[in-house]
Lab assay of single mutants.
Amino acid sequence: MRVFPVYAPKLIVKHARIFLTGVIWVKDLGRLEFEKGRFLLPRKSLPKVKQAILELNELIEAQN
């Protein structure tokens, strides 16, 4: 598990694309899981977490 002390979308996306499957922890967002290079949306999450995951997945799609 990698810990990101700040929310840096480009760096987080780079990590997810390299490792494809895993878990990261982002300060103020908490634990985020990714599989096959995409972030998974938890069943229950705060609106800011949901927005961050959608933003990260959009960045991943834009890079493909």
Rank of each mutant, 00 (worst) to 15 (best):
V26Q: 01
R31D: 04
Y7R: 01
P5F: 15
L20C: 13
K48Y: 05
F19P: 00
L32K: 00
A62C: 12
E55L: 07
L20F: 07
A52M: 05
A62W: 09
L54F: 09
D28G: 14
A62N: 10
K14G: 09
F34N: 02
S45K: 09
F19H: 09
A62M: 12
K10S: 12
K50A: 07
G37K: 04
A62L: 12
K48H: 08
L54I: 08
E58M: 10
K44F: 08
P47D: 08
F4W: 01
V13H: 02
L32E: 02
Q51P: 03
G22K: 02
P5L: 15
Q51E: 07
A16K: 01
R31K: 14
N64R: 07
E35A: 14
K10Q: 12
N64F: 04
K50N: 06
R43G: 08
K14N: 10
E61S: 10
V23I: 12
K10N: 12
R38N: 11
V13A: 14
P9G: 04
K14M: 14
V6S: 04
F4P: 01
L59R: 05
R43M: 06
E58L: 14
L40S: 05
S45L: 07
G22A: 03
I60N: 05
I53E: 00
L41M: 08
L41F: 08
S45E: 09
R17S: 11
W25S: 05
L41H: 09
R2S: 07
F4A: 01
I18C: 14
V6F: 14
F34T: 00
F4V: 02
L11G: 06
A52K: 11
L59I: 09
V23E: 15
P47W: 11
E33L: 10
G22F: 03
N64I: 10
I60P: 00
L59W: 08
I60G: 04
F34Q: 00
P42E: 05
W25T: 05
N57R: 02
A52S: 06
A52N: 02
V13P: 00
I12H: 01
L29G: 00
V6P: 00
R43P: 13
V13I: 08
R17C: 13
A62F: 08
M1A: 15
L29D: 01
I24F: 04
K10H: 09
S45T: 11
K44H: 07
L46V: 12
P9Y: 01
A62D: 10
L20T: 09
A62I: 10
M1L: 06
A8K: 06
R43T: 06
L41A: 09
K48R: 09
F19K: 14
V3P: 07
K36S: 11
I53P: 00
M1S: 15
